[in-house]
Nucleic acid binder design. Structure first.
Lengths: 216, 216
DNA sequence: TGTAATGTTTACCAATCGGTCAAATTATCC
DNA sequence: GGATAATTTGACCGATTGGTAAACATTACA
């Protein structure tokens, strides 16, 4: 009798790893569009190409699927900020942070939307992570930015709202993709819009951080 | 026999106006958090304090409720952009546009989230409005900004991405409110955060638009 | 005040929801 | 190859879903 669920076994089988990957991929498709409440296990099962009980063999509940997905996304989502280097040159650090975040919006839009959906619903599943690891990381990087300003390397600014601005502007191209495409029109909806956005955003933020000399 | 639904009558009764208002208010509460698919008529009925069939007397389907809500929100949501004045002073126009958008994020967060939810789901109910009225309005204002740049009143920049940036940064404080509060901590989660955001964003965008002189 | 239109509720429906169960199938390892 | 564990599925469950039917209550208006 195979009572133990996959999750409870000691070692993960080859099949387990493969199937869990397929399921999470399908779950990402569905959750990122409809949010937790609006998604159904049947939808995910159909996308994954397996039966519903089979999904539930690998993840005991809908919550468990969502949880696993969120955990994975949350980690990789913070990668760019983690890479933010206190010893680097301020301007190029900001620049590459923007570029990296924009690349993620381009290459992993579903992950961005999954996260956005969770935020819109009041973060019922991740509030602890926000207040813990996320806040800690942001606090740390905000301190770096503040130190740069104090040392006169960049203009004074509120580091928290700077970070919020970079988050929102870059993620906008993933989360509000439909709107961006609709407004830009079909002729500017190719991948080139990410190039344009990168150019604009780098200019915007870097200019804002330069210490202003006498104006023309 | 009262076959005709409220919506089909010639003139709207006093009761109709009141109840429809109550229902839409409740629907906004629910839809803005859970999105269309994730919301149920029962939830809305409970918030509205009336029975489910009573809701369905005023709005025949869940879609009709959502539709009515979206239409109303879409209109008021574009108010600030409509007010953007081609004959005004560029710097103060941008400034007051940011301020107005931020006020809306503060005073009408549910409306912002309703819209964001719709975008995340691929705008299945409003794609036409995006491609029509919205695009037209943005095109018009983008032309204004381009003209300002051409006349040397502001620095050259991509007007579309400028508008996207203002949208995303301001709406972020409504849509990602949980995250903002979590990162800022309880001591900075009072209404003052909107003041700080306004100060930061006005500086960011206005600086970016100033024609740059020789640097210090 | 009577009556027709409007508004409200109870009871209900078929479809779908998240999830279980036991039986059947497949992979693994000796 | 056979025993055993791991995987997959069809049938099913109670709860919830969006929505309806019809009886009942209230309002507006002559």
């Amino acid at each position: 009798m195979a009572i133990p669920r996959a999750a409870k076994t000691q070692r993960r089988t080859r099949i387990q790893e493969e199937k869990e990957e397929i399921i999470l991929e399908a779950a990402l498709d569905v959750f990122s569009v409809s949010g937790f409440r609006g998604s159904t296990i049947d939808q995910i099962a159909e996308v994954a190409g397996m039966s519903k009980p089979n999904l539930l063999y690998y993840f005991r509940t809908k919550e468990a699927m969502h949880r696993a997905l969120i955990d994975r996304v949350l980690f990789t989502w913070l990668e760019p900020l983690r890479a933010f280097d206190a010893n680097g040159d301020p301007e190029s650090e900001i620049r590459s942070y923007i570029r990296r975040k924009l690349e993620m919006a381009r290459d992993f839009p579903r992950e961005s939307r999954l996260f956005a959906n969770e935020m819109l619903q009041g973060a019922p599943h991740v509030e602890d992570e926000l207040r813990g690891p996320l806040k800690d990381l942001v606090d740390e990087k905000a301190e770096v930015i503040r130190a740069w300003a104090k040392a006169g390397k960049i203009a004074k600014c509120d580091p928290y709202h700077l970070i919020f601005s970079i988050w929102s502007t870059t993620q906008h191209y993933a989360d509000f993709d439909v709107q961006v495409r609709a407004v830009l029109g079909p002729e500017h909806s190719g991948e080139g819009r990410f190039e344009d956005a990168a150019r604009y955003l780098e200019q915007l933020f870097v200019d804002g951080l330069r210490i202003r000399g006498p104006r023309a």
